[in-house]
Nucleic acid binder design. Structure first.
Lengths: 337, 337
DNA sequence: GGCATAAGTGTAAGCGCTTGCATCACACTC
DNA sequence: GAGTGTGATGCAAGCGCTTACACTTATGCC
């Protein structure tokens, strides 16, 4: 493996000049720069990140902490983040707690602290006080996606209003018997995200003077399967069944639609369903939803991180605002029969 | 940030002893080890990976190259890999080419080469000759999942036999009109994976002396949506429609099931469907499938990498064999009407 | 008691870079 | 012609570790 010295001697300059020429910092004449570039190319030289990081204190590497990569929202945000980071020439080190406490502990008490990271992005993780402290001890920029952590930059959508909007949409179609399918806090993920959405739903119902029935306030684990079962239970009740569902995620909305179909109910004929997310499959199911642009949230988090690191200017600072969402009307909602 | 020197002086020993005590290499008395541990704890000291890597040549970090994290198989393998790596105290650096050539190029010609990795795992990537060469130039262990690359350790399932088995299952139920839904090579992902599965299907059909109809050899992009559309096209043909489908992935099988339902066909009454994967949703759809234990494949790749790095012994070397799969019979297959 | 051997520790030389500082050549200005 | 600025370069001191080697002290054995 060629080192900077090899490049230097081949180019006939000092290592300092090579470093400056390749990194673009400091003054180097065009002539030297060309010589260095060529020598590096010929030798197949690539700078050693470890040495570079050690000497400069910059790693060009950001840590990304997720509760799992198995769920749509997480993998989609991750996709957006990786893409943005590659463009910036940064590496992304993935810390996946997999919902296991053991892993979570390793991540926060060891892995994140090893000085290989320039910054950390956390994805809908409800940090415990000790974790927050550990994170601060690293003295690196931290950006959170999907929840408000005191003192930490955050990218988040307006869960309350999103859910309220979803409910209002159904109400305006004439629905009165509207159920809400929220998410449980599996993975300690939530930051009241679930409850912010539930609050929004209840707010809209109150505004319309519609009753919120306790047995129609149900929760599942954000997965299709989980939602399927719960919704099926509700819809199978022959006495009184809702004519519409507000679901806290698209995947759960899919579960609701599938449950309805399996019971012989048509969507939207017998049941209207609204989701929240913007999942690719939404189109296929004709799902009315509120797109929260997950991939863009990942990119936005990266953008914010890079801005803090001084890599570029932040275009329009969305620090305090909510991340924009978009209502997408499709065929899973219609006036009640 | 405390450095090893701080720990050394606090513990009243030399930095060498600290290094040895903390890494577990070399001889250190119990007394010193205890002193060092305590000093480190009190200072909140964690070794700097960069410095450690630079000095030792070991990074405790493996690179993981994926075409995308958006598809079930990839994110599931990734989940398995992250879990195994965390347990070993390794970091995972994620290189996601996102199907973009620009990113792919950065990854192979830059990012992977920066000497921050002890090994590389590639996920169903069909490497181009130059990429293979670049990878070799790194002189680090490489393990591939999901395809055979000459001269590289590989974890892979027996695609030919899996597909043949799926077809034989349908044949044994009495089906004669069996279609095959294969995958396209989006992302240049495939290694003839698609065609190995197609070959297996054709082999089984030949053995049973059943005709393979060209118009029933269809392909989609491995997604639910893609499959839905293609299958719908086939099933909507009133003249002659298959009574069963072998699908090269579970997600495509879901698409097939949904397409059938939307056309008023019942599964398995009017159409039997077999998938390949072992997707979580399979249970909900009652999908008969061949589970390829994606998460375990990720863990196996990690295990192999760690063995090569000398971290542990490889239990039972599956180097040459195929990764085991499992037939899961559920309710999406039945004898034809 | 003498000697080989082993166990525990410290010294110091790197690992491959970055970067502050010094140097030098070459304009300019007055 | 002396003084001053400026651009280009090199020197060398680290960055925070690991580890070969040397050294000191205990241990075992005849």
């Amino acid at each position: 493996m060629p080192s900077i010295k090899d490049v230097a001697s081949r180019a006939g300059v000092s290592v300092a000049t090579v470093s400056r020429a390749l990194s673009g910092k400091g003054k180097v004449s065009e002539a030297s720069r060309a010589k260095v570039r060529r020598a590096a190319e010929e030798l197949g030289y690539v700078v050693s990140y470890n040495a570079s990081s050690l000497a400069s204190g910059r790693s060009r590497n950001v840590g990304f902490v997720v509760p799992t990569v198995g769920r749509w929202f997480f993998s989609t945000v991750l996709e957006g983040a990786t893409s943005a980071l590659i463009d910036a020439g940064y590496d992304l080190t993935l810390y996946n707690t997999s919902g296991q406490d053991r892993h979570r502990h390793s991540v926060f008490s060891d892995l994140l602290l090893r000085k290989r990271l320039d910054a950390v992005i956390t994805l809908t993780l409800k940090l415990r006080p000790t974790e927050l402290e550990q994170l601060r001890a690293v003295r690196k920029p931290v950006v959170a996606i999907g929840g408000l952590i005191p003192g930490i930059d955050t990218i988040r959508v307006d869960d309350f209003n999103i859910a309220a909007l979803a409910a209002e949409h159904l109400i305006s179609l004439g629905h009165r018997d509207i159920a809400f399918l929220g998410g449980t806090e599996e993975f300690e993920v939530d930051f009241k995200l679930g409850s912010a959405r539930e609050d929004g739903y209840e707010f809209a119902m109150d505004q319309a003077e519609l009753p919120v029935r306790r047995e129609w306030l149900i929760t599942a684990d954000f997965t299709v399967q989980g939602a399927y079962q719960k919704v099926r239970n509700v819809l199978a009740n022959p006495r009184h069944r809702p004519t519409a569902f507000v679901c806290a995620s698209d995947e759960m909305a899919f579960g609701a639609i599938l449950a309805a179909r399996d019971l012989g109910l048509s969507v939207p004929g017998d049941l209207s369903v609204v989701g929240i997310d913007g999942h690719e499959l939404g189109e296929m199911f004709g799902l009315t939803t509120i797109d929260q642009h997950a991939a863009r949230q990942g990119a936005a988090a990266v953008s914010k991180v890079l801005a803090i690191l001084g890599e570029h200017e932040l275009e329009h600072d969305p620090t305090d605002g909510f991340f924009p969402t978009e209502f997408v009307a499709r065929s899973s909602t219609a006036p009640p029969a």
